[in-house]
Design a protein around this nucleic acid. Structure first.
Length: 452
RNA sequence: GGCCACGUGGCGGAAUGGUUACGCAGAGGAUUGCAAAUCCUUCCAUCCCAGUUCGAUUCUGGGCGUGGCCUCCA
């Protein structure tokens, strides 16, 4: 069977064969967080989706053949604003949120990218890319601002499938008078003395939003690389602008060959927004849900489809993993069967893959050793069942309001009642325990208990 | 207004020019003092209308509906 990966490319609007620029080597850049606020479930989706892709690419090409770069944007107007609102110095804010983000990544069992560059470490590169664009007449300076001239890039709008003139007509943005064209975007802007700033040929200032990704992707992956990923909301304007400035600065036709975008997460069918107050932060979930549950839930829908986040989804994911954990065993690195791999090779079809895992689970639980090994390998391949049983049980323990000693006493009482034929009492004890999140199972002659 | 995506059983969710996965829920049974767990069996779906075709859920056109983007966003 073939091991050809096919992925949907936003640039062409089609599913394409994935062919890396250098055979057997892959470079992938994914837009990371702007560190101004705690990451939420919507931020978690690309983290998990592209982590699965990263794992798959490693499986297909070899562990050390994939370079995964995910930036941290630590200079941005949103950060400046958040710092003022929260009255936290920028350094502390970005440091804290970055730390939090890393904890979230770990919690979601995401592998570390090979590089995680910060925007503020690449200001020099951004300045020289801006100079370069100015020299090539792709940008212009006005009143200490430098703007990218959208008209100078003939392919502008190709990625997001938009026509520049239509964009202008529908523009609802308040247009800066300094711009020659309403679509032009800022590469460099002046900073007030209170705001973070760096010396530049255009005075003390800071970079525009899109520039960091252009500069850092080039530094770590080159002018032309394989995969660029991110959330659907980044297609326009972020990725469109990134591509425009990179192609113009690098004098290339190609920037990223394949663009992948994950769909949105809604919350109870509503768009997540701060004004509605329905943002679920990952930090909050860490308190009582195992990260694998979140991971599983995020993978239960194809990455391009919208995903609704709700209680039922979490419960079902939790129950499935609970069932799967009954077969838990630590196993080493193993090969996936071609058959199992197929759905992932078709544009990362994780629901199809999970369905195959279900069928392997069935065979495995009936004693098929080969299926069991494959099942466990398959789970591990998408970052599931890597934690041992004890840590899987941990959350159930913390969530239950009863200690083990009490449980044992109650079970003993129930045993006695049963022996005396007092089933009424026995049943009420069981009901009681169930309310505390404990399930009783009478197996053979022994009574077993477990957390709900 | 422009552009785009989507519409599959009670719910979630894949795939496909020809037998429509899978999970949850439901029903029946085995088991049990009763349960739970497990096992077995089982019910249920491709928005509407045309067209192409031997055959459409899949392709084409139209309609209806939902959502998104065109402003910061994962």
């Amino acid at each position: 069977m073939n091991k050809q990966l096919n992925i949907f490319n936003t640039l062409s609007g089609k599913k394409e064969k994935f062919i890396p620029i250098n055979t057997g080597k892959v470079g992938m850049y994914v837009c990371g967080p702007t560190v101004y606020d705690f990451p939420h479930i919507g931020n978690a989706r690309p983290l998990v989706v592209f982590d699965v892709l990263f794992r798959l690419l490693k499986k297909l090409n070899g562990d050390d053949k994939v370079t995964y770069v995910r930036n941290i944007t630590d200079i941005d107007d949103k950060i400046i604003e958040a710092s003022k609102n929260k009255k936290i110095p920028i350094d502390k804010l970005t440091k804290d949120i970055t730390k939090n983000f890393h904890d979230d990544c770990k919690y979601l069992n995401c592998l570390k990218p090979n590089f995680e560059p910060r925007a503020t470490e690449h200001i020099k590169g951004m300045i020289s890319m801006t100079e370069n664009l100015l020299n090539n007449k792709h940008a212009y300076e006005k009143d200490k601002h430098v703007y990218f001239s959208v008209n100078s890039f003939k392919n502008y709008g190709k990625l997001s499938n938009k026509k520049p003139d239509e964009l202008e007509a529908g523009s609802r943005v308040e247009i800066s008078k300094l711009k020659n064209n309403p679509l032009d975007f800022v590469l460099w802007k002046p900073s007030s003395t209170d705001d973070p700033g760096w010396d530049s040929p255009w005075g003390r200032g800071r970079p525009g939003w899109h520039l960091e990704c252009s500069v850092m992707s080039e530094k770590f992956l080159g002018k032309n690389f394989d995969i660029h990923g991110g959330g659907l909301d980044l297609v326009f304007p972020h990725h469109e602008n990134e591509m425009a400035q990179s192609c113009c600065a690098n004098e290339t036709d190609k920037f990223a060959n394949y663009w992948l975008h994950n769909g949105y997460v809604t919350f109870n069918k509503e768009k997540m927004s701060k004004s509605v107050g329905n943002i679920v932060t990952i930090q909050k979930m860490r308190e009582k849900i195992n990260g694998q549950v979140i991971r599983f839930a995020l993978l239960s829908t194809h990455y391009k489809q919208p995903l609704d986040w709700n209680e039922k989804l979490i419960n079902e994911s939790q129950n499935t993993l609970d069932k799967w954990y009954s077969l838990f065993e630590k196993i080493g690195e193993n090969e996936l069967s071609d058959d199992l791999l197929q759905p992932l090779l078709q544009d990362l079809n994780t629901p199809g893959y999970i369905s195959k895992l279900h069928s392997l689970y069935d065979k495995a639980s009936k004693g098929d050793k080969y299926s069991k090994k494959l099942f466990l390998t398959g789970c591990n391949a998408i970052g599931l069942l890597e934690e041992d049983l004890k840590s899987w049980e941990k959350f159930k323990k913390t969530n239950s309001k009863i200690d083990e000693k009490t449980i044992r006493i109650k079970i003993k009482n129930r045993e006695d009642a049963r022996k005396n034929g007092n089933y009424k009492l026995a049943d009420s004890i069981r009901k009681d325990l169930e309310k505390s999140g404990i399930i009783i199972e009478d197996k053979n002659d022994k009574t077993k208990w477990r957390y709900k």
